[in-house]
Nucleic acid binder design. Structure first.
Lengths: 235, 235
DNA sequence: AGGGATCGACTGAACGGTCGATAAGCGGGA
DNA sequence: TCCCGCTTATCGACCGTTCAGTCGATCCCT
């Protein structure tokens, strides 16, 4: 309670650091149920059963079933957005490393928070108001990335003639990681993130990308010490 | 019997030709309902209402609700697979044009058959047996594309060091077209397909891709003079 | 040509069960 | 005493599915 939560309020943890999921037990079990059967395929009785309480207990904490989904999706989107912003800030204004950091942060989220990221498939079940707020956050993320790519094009470091399409494609393939990633798979989240940085560079037309990882500046090429990385540089 | 059904069996229409959706009215309305509310969010009463019949009429034609979804998904997957195979066959064995044709055919399907392609998000609601058959078809498509990319790598026309990841990313971003494409949007399906060929080439590391469309051999760069047209072509 | 039998396509009514949600009450800590 | 967190009991609506029957078209047998 002392060392971990100390950083959470005053000083957010590094964008690449992932501790255990810190979420209300109700939300955790709701997330799992929604991921297994979808929003409409999950009953509030099923959720209550997983949590180990009765149905009205859920309604004491959350207004209704829809609020559970909205809370989960908004929490998730804000988290990935914050991490991506932090990654961009840390990388600076140079478009190439900035783009790489943003993609890396997004893919890391999709893998390390797969349970939350996968819920993205349930936006259709959001009521209009909730969906509008969620989409606005997602659009903001897309614009952030697009600005970086266009800056890179102006500097000649990216060459795609269709930056908007490229950015959308990049985000879709990052989001796709949440669909197929398995924690017990052959690759770590960090490795997958690194690979997707390479793939994304190809998609936006970075001339060095066709040579593999050769021409790409990176902070660390191999796996970092996984446990408790302390924030470096500027917070 | 008729001239139409003769072509369907003996001589399939060209892989890039899309007439009006030829599907049982029950399936059409089921598709629309599933796309609006998802499988579990759609009631058979809703489907029956859209079709304009009573509920038991549905059960006369299809065993149950699950069979409706399974039929739709399998029909869709087989169609895109057939079209992709036809595109590959027409393009020949040279990896570069073969890859381009395959991606183009897939994206064309995602746009022109968006309603069916979008149902892909409902695979979770398939019972295990149905899902296994669907996934097998999708895996086959992925292997077809992977073989082509690896052949291209052997020939030096693609340079990605991670062909399996690249192919998965390409397919995901093609599938993603079904999520955002709008028939009344600024781009035609053919234009979107062309752009995604370029994006895909970047993703698999084709050296010419960073120069835009310059280095890519194409059958037709601009507006489609569709040869071999059923008068049912594009408006 | 006429009369039954058969068939495909469909309807009306209803089955048992589950859904999301709520009212009212209860125990225990401050 | 009061409120927080939860319970038991229950609401009406809706769920997927089925049964028995209807109705017109087509077929076979005379």
């Amino acid at each position: 309670m002392s060392t971990q939560s100390r950083q959470e309020t005053a000083d957010a943890p590094h964008w690449s650091a992932y501790g255990p999921l810190d979420l209300h037990p109700i939300l955790v079990h709701t997330m799992e149920a929604f991921n297994e059967h979808g929003y409409h395929g999950t009953s509030v009785r099923d959720i209550a059963g997983r949590v180990g309480v009765t149905v009205p207990a859920l309604y004491y904490h959350y207004e209704n079933k829809q609020a559970l989904l909205a809370t989960l999706l908004e929490t998730s989107m804000k988290d990935v957005l914050d991490r991506c912003r932090a990654a961009a800030a840390e990388a600076g204004d140079e478009p190439l490393p900035r783009f790489c950091a943003m993609v890396e942060s997004i893919v890391l989220y999709m893998a390390n928070r797969k349970g939350l990221a996968f819920l993205d498939t349930e936006i259709r079940s959001l009521e209009p108001g909730n969906r509008a707020r969620y989409v606005a956050l997602r659009d903001y993320l897309e614009h952030m990335l697009l600005d970086t790519v266009e800056a890179g094009i102006a500097r000649g470091v990216f060459t795609t003639p269709i930056p908007a399409d490229a950015v959308r494609a990049v985000l879709i393939m990052c989001q796709g990681v949440a669909n197929w990633y398995r924690a017990d798979g052959p690759l770590t989240a960090a490795q997958i993130a690194e690979r997707h940085v390479l793939l994304s560079l190809g998609t936006v037309g970075h001339p060095g990308a066709v040579d593999g990882l050769a021409g790409i500046p990176s902070r660390r090429r191999t796996a970092p010490p996984r446990q408790r990385p302390n924030p470096e540089g500027r917070p």
